[in-house]
Simulated assay, not measured.
Amino acid sequence: MATILCYGDSLTWGSIPNGGRYPKHLRWPSMLNDLLGHHHEVINFGLPGRTTLWNDPFLEGRNGLAYLQAALETFGPVDTLILMLGTNDLKRHFNVGTYEAAKGIEKLIDKARMPNTHGFSSPNLVVVAPPNILSPMGSLAANFDGAIEKSQHFHQHYQDMAIHNKCLFLNSAGILQPSEVDGVHLDSHANKQLAHALFSLLKDKIKP
């Protein structure tokens, strides 16, 4: 049995565009578990607002780097770690771009590969470049002011960083886009597309 930990933000947690949370079976980690088989365990550890490594002055506990080691110990040993973060890094008050988000993911990779006191092996790593942001709507419009153009560069910086760090890589913008309802979050079809793309990437790399 393999343990796959999905470490992400609201796109992993299962936020419904414009509010609410999808039932478990419509979130992509659950769909991935269905595809891989339930002798494996796919853990959804998404959290709305989570960043790669920035402390959000308006949301407590959203620094991804600060909580990764605890997550790996809590759910360990973890065979595969899927990192899908960076969208929230583009919020206006952080004033950074996708290059800095990719460097944040690199710090998470380093953390995941550090020796631990339990003797757990380092997990295999999958880096998912977040989808491009469309026109943010409603309450998201001010938060993500200027983020549309920045998000176009996720693919480039994340792929370069993933190759350099010998990680599996998936460009989600190549297979899906956010819902037009709010321009950021995924509809149920996009969740399904992401689950299938990750299954194709992982199916031959996870022991039966």
Rank of each mutant, 00 (worst) to 15 (best):
residue 2 A to T: 14
residue 3 T to W: 06
residue 9 D to N: 12
residue 13 W to C: 03
residue 17 P to G: 03
residue 18 N to Y: 07
residue 21 R to A: 09
residue 21 R to C: 11
residue 23 P to A: 10
residue 23 P to C: 09
residue 26 L to A: 10
residue 28 W to P: 04
residue 28 W to G: 00
residue 35 L to T: 05
residue 35 L to Q: 08
residue 35 L to W: 02
residue 36 L to F: 08
residue 37 G to R: 04
residue 37 G to C: 07
residue 38 H to I: 05
residue 40 H to Q: 08
residue 43 I to S: 10
residue 44 N to R: 10
residue 46 G to A: 09
residue 47 L to P: 05
residue 49 G to W: 01
residue 50 R to P: 03
residue 51 T to A: 07
residue 53 L to A: 13
residue 54 W to F: 14
residue 57 P to T: 05
residue 57 P to K: 11
residue 57 P to H: 09
residue 57 P to D: 04
residue 61 G to M: 08
residue 62 R to Q: 10
residue 63 N to D: 14
residue 64 G to N: 03
residue 65 L to I: 03
residue 65 L to R: 11
residue 73 E to M: 11
residue 74 T to H: 14
residue 76 G to S: 06
residue 77 P to E: 11
residue 78 V to L: 06
residue 79 D to K: 06
residue 80 T to H: 06
residue 81 L to V: 03
residue 81 L to Y: 00
residue 81 L to S: 02
residue 89 D to R: 06
residue 89 D to N: 13
residue 91 K to G: 02
residue 98 T to L: 06
residue 99 Y to N: 11
residue 101 A to E: 03
residue 101 A to P: 04
residue 105 I to V: 12
residue 108 L to H: 03
residue 117 T to E: 14
residue 124 N to R: 14
residue 124 N to E: 12
residue 127 V to W: 02
residue 128 V to F: 04
residue 129 A to L: 00
residue 131 P to G: 01
residue 131 P to C: 15
residue 136 P to Y: 06
residue 137 M to N: 14
residue 139 S to H: 11
residue 139 S to V: 13
residue 139 S to K: 14
residue 141 A to Y: 07
residue 141 A to V: 10
residue 141 A to H: 14
residue 147 A to F: 06
residue 148 I to R: 14
residue 152 Q to Y: 12
residue 170 L to R: 00
residue 181 V to S: 06
residue 181 V to H: 04
residue 182 D to S: 01
residue 185 H to R: 09
residue 186 L to R: 01
residue 186 L to Q: 03
residue 187 D to P: 04
residue 188 S to Q: 14
residue 189 H to F: 12
residue 189 H to V: 15
residue 190 A to R: 05
residue 192 K to A: 13
residue 195 A to Q: 01
residue 197 A to G: 01
residue 199 F to Q: 05
residue 201 L to S: 02
residue 202 L to A: 01
residue 206 I to F: 03
residue 208 P to I: 12
